[in-house]
Design a protein around this nucleic acid. Structure first.
Lengths: 111, 111
DNA sequence: TTAACGTACTACGACAGACATAGTACGATA
DNA sequence: TATCGTACTATGTCTGTCGTAGTACGTTAA
């Protein structure tokens, strides 16, 4: 354990986290996963399969689009870019979060 | 929509909510569901099947125990009582919540 | 030279929790 | 007489997460 977060708890916010990291610029799987690790100070490490299946889902729902581009080293990468629809979905999730947080806190005692 | 919370987000906290409501005294399904509704001001309504399957899971894990008792009207009810183990699990979840909240907030912009 | 490591994924299958749907049972109320 | 509220149980489906494994290639270390 050691300060780790169970995925059942985060479930439902993976998509939001990914969209957040795409707000400013397109990015790709490996980088997103490193950013999540860094931003959470290792407290949350998204699994590869979870991440890539999230990309698929987000694209299918129209929240992101993908394109291929050669990286510096000549290797091919799949980049993902947030759409307008994705941005408004992100905003919705942020509002929902305020509500959710408020609700859960009524059941949690801080010791 | 209209101020509703998607269950994916609450997922992982249903158990905690139930345990919270059992902290002071034993209770039963229908009452728990009414208390959740009241405490959240109708913002979250737990589904019956979700609730009862949570009871089963919690009991299997040793967090609660059950017993039958006749209600005032002579009908039989199944009451659930939190165990010591359940109380310490609840405390763990409360601590985890602080961590989770902190992590998610790094990805959520408040507008 | 070769093996390990980091990067960048894809495929497949299993599992758990939430939920839709349906049904049972009984007392009170309309 | 029928509906509503109470108090559940049973069954099956769906979704998101994750374990496991495999592919491919470039760089670094022994």
């Amino acid at each position: 354990m050691a300060g780790n977060i169970s995925s059942d708890v985060i479930r439902g916010y993976n998509d939001t986290m990914i969209l957040f990291l795409l707000l400013d610029a397109p990015s790709y799987g490996y980088e997103i996963s490193k950013q999540i690790r860094a931003l959470t100070e290792e407290k949350y490490l998204i699994k590869e399969t979870t991440l890539y299946s999230a990309f698929t889902r987000l694209e299918k729902n129209g929240y992101i689009t993908s394109f291929s581009r050669e990286a510096e080293n000549g290797k091919k990468r799949t980049y993902y870019e947030i759409t307008q629809y994705g941005k408004s979905y992100y905003r919705e999730k942020c509002e929902e979060w305020q509500l959710t947080k408020d609700v859960i806190e009524r059941f949690v005692k801080d010791l």
